[in-house]
Amino acid sequence: MAEDVPAWDFAVAPPRTAPGVSSMVGYRALDVPHTLHRGLPSSRLTFIVAMDDGVEAAATMDALPAVHPAPIILGGLHTSASYVRQRPAQAGVQIAMHPLAARAVFGIPAAELPVTEFDGTSYLGTAARDLHGRMTEVTDWRTAFRLVADHLIGRYDGDHVDRLRPELLRAWHLFERTGGRAPVGAVARAVGLSTRHLGTLFAREVGRSPKQVAGLMRFERAQAAIAEQVRLRGSADLAGVAAAGGFSDQAHLSREFGRYVGLSPTVWIAEELRNIQDGGHRGAGEWTHD
């Protein structure tokens, strides 16, 4: 029966495939009509290598009609949903990159990556275009993951990591360990900086304030929990997710979801149900990163 046909084929690469990678997921549309998809904000950078002619993505729905397919997508830390035109048979590999690895992998800080334009070829050059060309000829996920991992390993320069301020690394860890629930002032004191100085470090390196990064972490943890519950049992306990994620109540969670996604959690679930059931919307936190 038609309803038994999966919409997507998703495949997950093994953890620690390449430096700075939080997750690497292959996607291939199997039964997907022409439709609109919302790319969710995250505390990770988005790096996509298409296995077809490219991804059509824009920061706003109004901008989408003028967008041309981009073979490589690279985006900084977004605080609102992006819009992606889904097409039958599209395929690629999507990588969630740790923002503090941007200098080491891409040669520039995450703060300098685009948040309203997504074509990454101008940032990554000929090697990335060559990678896309090879990826269009791949038919299995193992080879696709190896090609992407080899590309990232080849770009990696560990000297950039050594130059990161240890206070910044420690602060990020504290926010992440608490799912974004740690107060900014408390984190600043814990790493021996003023709140203002910590904010300067975050703005310079990732282009967002500590409060914004913490908010993204809270949102993505809640979104991943909702998706996992829907995938396992067909529905989500939104009040429970709100309580576990540090939101004051379900209404608070819904307001934050609306701010980041433009939809309530229940409408988002309905819109993304097939993607979720087929294994999409995995949280980057399922992996550890180097």
Rank of each mutant, 00 (worst) to 15 (best):
L36Y: 08
R208S: 01
R155V: 08
A171Q: 08
A188E: 05
T126A: 13
D31Q: 11
L131C: 05
Q212K: 09
G280N: 03
A225P: 04
F175H: 09
E286T: 14
G207D: 10
G54M: 04
V84S: 00
T200S: 10
Y123H: 14
G26R: 04
M51V: 06
A29T: 06
W141K: 04
P65A: 08
A13P: 12
F219E: 00
A101C: 05
A242T: 02
A242K: 02
A66S: 14
L198S: 07
A186K: 15
P65F: 07
L74Y: 03
Q277M: 13
R16G: 11
R16A: 13
G279A: 08
S264D: 10
A182G: 03
T266R: 15
G207Q: 12
V67R: 11
H37R: 15
T60M: 08
V67W: 00
F219G: 04
T143E: 15
G246I: 02
I269Q: 10
F175E: 06
L74D: 00
V261Q: 05
V161L: 15
A102F: 00
D157T: 09
T178K: 07
S42I: 03
P71I: 05
Q229T: 07
R16H: 15
A57R: 15
A50C: 08
V5T: 14
N275T: 11
P210R: 06
A91H: 10
L164P: 03
G26H: 06
G192H: 09
S43I: 02
L113A: 00
G75T: 12
G107D: 08
A239R: 14
V161E: 14
W141G: 01
Q90N: 06
L124E: 08
L263G: 00
D9M: 09
G207F: 09
G179W: 06
V115E: 12
T121I: 13
G133M: 04
H132P: 03
H173R: 15
V161A: 11
W268S: 04
P166I: 06
W172H: 10
R129C: 01
M217K: 07
S82N: 12
S22D: 11
I72A: 02
A50M: 06
A101M: 09
V267G: 00
A63R: 15
A128Y: 01
R231K: 09
T178R: 12
A59I: 03
H197Y: 12
A186D: 15
F175S: 06
G179E: 08
A128D: 06
L113S: 02
A224V: 09
R208E: 03
V105C: 05
P6R: 11
G262R: 14
T116P: 02
R85M: 07
Y156P: 03
S122F: 11
G192T: 11
I153C: 01
R85L: 10
D119T: 02
A227S: 15
A188L: 03
G133L: 00
A59V: 09
P71H: 01
G154Q: 10
D159H: 14
L74S: 00
Y123S: 08
L152N: 04
Q90I: 05
D150N: 14
Q212N: 03
I108H: 07
R204H: 11
